[in-house]
Amino acid sequence: MDLIRVKNLSKNYGTKQKIPALKGFDMTLEKGEMVAIMGRSGSGKSTVLNLLSGIDQLEGGQYLFEDTDMFRLSEREMIRFRRENIGVIFQHFALIDEFTVFQNIALPLSLRHIPSGLIEEKVRNAAEELGISTLLRKYPKELSGGEAQRTAIARAIITEPKLILADEPTGALDEENGLRIMSVFARLHEKGNTLVIVTHDPQVASCCQRTIRIKDGRNEP
């Protein structure tokens, strides 16, 4: 069953002079799939991820998430959609420096009416699964790149989102840590999670079920 259906997606940047970033991108994603979007720098792969996650405003084309037409959502509905359905992981982790690892992971849950005991239990389970349970009291600046990325993954999966999007998740890591992160993604996939990984690294793409190639804002044949 399709989780995502994207047709002819387009996006321009700039206000005075429009610079096209996507010029008609298509993709479908089934539930439980793990897909890589690959392309060179500036090909538009990160734009796809921004549009899928609702970080960027949709402009042209069609984007269905399950049966929801994403073009019809208001700003408020989009924020709620993102909160309930999407987990995002970035290359440079995007952790909050003033918060501890525990607080960073708990952030998405603290916005829901969940008892603090349950939040603690969920954070500890996620941390244990990712091998960072001893780091919960530390701050992001005290972590290595691999630890910070695993914290970011823990935060992305803590709400059990329907779709996990990762933007160059191993880009800032050494090879050993990169492999560890990919094994985490593989485990998440085995557990039935749906993942889209944006990368330019063929080794990362090879860990996915299939690869969608993008060039100059279009699907590469």
């Binding site: 970080i55 709620r80 993102r82 995002v88 995007a94 909050i96 420096d97 952030l107 998405p108």
Partner: peptide
Amino acid sequence: KKYCIYSLHG
């Protein structure tokens, strides 16, 4: 960055 992370998480 912090406020963008807040927004990212809804």
